[in-house]
Structures are given as C-alpha cells and as structure tokens.
Amino acid sequence: MEDTGSIVAFWLLAALTLGSALAVVLIRDLIRAVVLLITSFLGVAGLYITLSADFVAVVQVLIYVGAISVLMLFAIMLTPRAGRNNAETFFRIPGILLAGLMAFTISLVSLDTDWAVVERGGFEETASAIGEALLDKYVLPFELAAVLLLVAMLGAILLVHPEGTDEE
C-alpha cells in the first residue's frame, strides 16, 4: 500500500469513522447520534474498500446503513420524547477506564507483535469467491445463519405482537 491515494484515503476515512463515533458518544440527541453513527458506518465501508473488500463494503452499506440504522430510527420514533436522551449512567467512570484500558492493551499488543505480514496485493474480485466459500466450505454455518435469521424474525414478531389480540 504505497500509493498516495490509499494513504490519504485511509487517514481521511479513519478520521471520519473515529470522529463520528466519538461524536455519537458525546452528542445528547439520539437522532443526531444515529445520523452520526451512519456516517461512522459509511467510513468503515470506505475502509473496507481500501482493504479491497468491495463485497463486504457494499454489504456494510446495505445492512448497517440501510437496515440497522433504519431500525434504530424506527425504535427511537416509537418511544416517547423522554426516551430520546443519550445520557450516561453512573457507569461512566468505570466505562471510560475499561474502554481506555482496552484500547491501550490492544494497541500495545498490535504494535508490539511482529505480524510477519507477507505482502500480497488486493483481491481482484471477492464476491464470487465469497459466494463459493459460503456454499462450499461454510455451507453449514450459512444454513445456520439462515435459521438464525428466521428465528430472530419470528422472535421479534412474537415479542412485539400484542398479547391476547389477534390482529387481522
């Protein structure tokens, strides 16, 4: 990864991702937090592209930006105005400590380890390879994921289905 474009892109995207993630923590208004979270997700998608993972990048946009954040917006809208506060609990100090410790440890480890990276270029095309892997090597987990999604959907429907009333 020598060319200037990728380096600039990495720093810009990293700044975007981390900056909006920090803003998500700090901002009080939950809707704005979700909007910033979407920005952060988009930054991560961009980082995937710098890692030549185009399929995952697009899936990231599709699922995180298109579905999960929309679900969050929906949940926020269905709760009252008082529920739109993004304040912290009294776990703030332990949280900061723990998170800081975590960041410090992982960074230290990743800097300290000799990763012995073999430089190989990016991928030409990941989508078909992933598809083949999913239906060949990982076919069991793939089926399980499908079952999981089904069960999750049924569970979600059952959870919000009002008891005792049969909706037409």
Binding site: L78, P80, R81, P162, E163, T165, E167
Partner: peptide, 8 residues
C-alpha cells in the same frame, strides 16, 4: 395495537 405511544 396496544402500543402505548404518545397521542399525536
């Protein structure tokens, strides 16, 4: 629905 939302 028995959802207790704010009347709008």
């Amino acid at each position: 629905m028995s959802m207790k939302t704010e009347p709008f």
